[in-house]
Design a protein around this nucleic acid. Structure first.
Lengths: 224, 224
DNA sequence: ACCTTAGCATTACGCCGTAAGGCAAGCAAT
DNA sequence: ATTGCTTGCCTTACGGCGTAATGCTAAGGT
């Protein structure tokens, strides 16, 4: 028997690389097999189907995230792991819609969630407070990264090129507030969407902290 | 010539219905055509390709969102449209990954963004403040809804059934913090993930408001 | 009466995921 | 040494996908 060329780990690793380079739609069982020097059906001896492979890929992405330490300052730990999540998802943009939709979490996924809960719990959060904080921070980090990876430009310079084009010019005059926004935000030198991430996260952490200290939540009655 | 059976609107509407019922992976050009009583290729006389159809579907979802009024209270308007976004995305879960990834916005999409900017602008937000507020709120709403639609359960009762199953039981003992979380949050009577939405949004709105009033953002130095 | 054109259908191509089965190389038991 | 099982990979084949190319039919303009 020739030395085994394939292992689940090697396959998943190659699949992540391929998806990074070609996009998730370029990852097919055949293209992946070609990349590994084998035939497509050989992969099915290591994964029962493509779904299982996707599960493994997602778990590898979770494995790249720096876990929060249970004995650290919860704000610093949450900040660090949020940045780490965002970096991992920028390295693997295809993972953004996948991470939240897989139903068979792998060991790295479970370890990730466990460490997050442990960190907040150790900081004295009640179960309800953990639920609140976790839901809010995760929604923000995933949502921000989703927006970010979908954006057709990152810096203002890239946007400036796009705005020159004819159809976009027409749209910006038809929708004057968007035109105002583009002119006064996107096209201002130094703009990048990425810089919104950290301030938004701090706003969340501030809110979580003040709620913990007993500041009552302002209900809908207040602003309406 | 028989009276035209197909219009882009009718096709997109049927596609949305089909995706709602069968899921986005059940929406194929053939299944959609079958549903409309025509052949698959007939659809290509109204849409240049499936991507264009998906664009139209996304724009229909945007069209379901209640637009914020420019002359209203910005908190109330943002609250209302955020709830409306979430409801639209719950009606059409397949749209969550699509809405942020389409690159050819339709009229409803543009009107939506324009109305949002207009609302904040009319409330006296500077361009930078609009950018901050919009990025944060959108990230939260999309991220929350992404988590929500991906969750295998909604209420604690549904979760209780899942937890009975063997493989999950083993996981919860292996990851004690997750076990603690499930026991003290998910399985507590009355739990539902959905109830986290409004408090989290209020936290954001509070933060946006206080930042506007000149409260300096707490930087990483504070908590680290 | 002719031609254009719009609206829909037919056929076919190259992709996809994967079920079913084959085959060769190594190990274990006899 | 022979047998037979297991492991790892390959071959073939099927139904379904998006869609290019082309054909047919009937209404409307001239």
């Amino acid at each position: 028997m020739p030395p085994r060329k394939l292992t689940p780990e090697a396959i998943a690793s190659a699949a992540v690389d391929l998806a990074d380079r070609e996009g998730i739609e370029g990852l097919t069982m055949r293209s992946l097999a070609r990349h590994l020097g084998v035939e497509a059906m050989s992969l099915y001896h290591h994964f029962v189907g493509k779904d299982a492979l996707l599960d493994a890929m997602v778990d590898r992405v979770y494995g790249e995230i720096v876990l929060p330490a249970a004995d650290g300052n919860w704000r610093a730990e949450l900040r660090r792991r949020s940045a780490s999540v965002r970096e991992a998802l920028r390295r693997h943009p295809w993972a953004v819609p996948l991470m939240e939709s897989r139903r068979t979490p792998g060991p790295a996924t479970l370890a990730y969630h466990d460490a997050n809960i442990a960190c907040l719990r150790a900081a004295g959060f009640s179960a309800d407070q953990v639920a609140h904080a976790y839901a809010i921070v995760d929604a923000y980090v995933y949502g921000f990264t989703l927006s970010e990876t979908a954006l057709p430009f990152d810096t203002g310079e890239e946007a400036a090129v796009m705005v020159q084009e004819e159809p976009l010019q027409a749209l910006l005059t038809a929708y004057p507030n968007m035109g105002w926004f583009v002119e006064n935000v996107v096209l201002v030198p130094g703009y990048s969407f990425a810089r919104e991430f950290a301030p938004g996260l701090e706003l969340l952490l501030d809110g979580i902290e003040s709620r913990r200290r007993g500041v009552p939540a302002s209900g809908p009655s207040r602003g309406a």
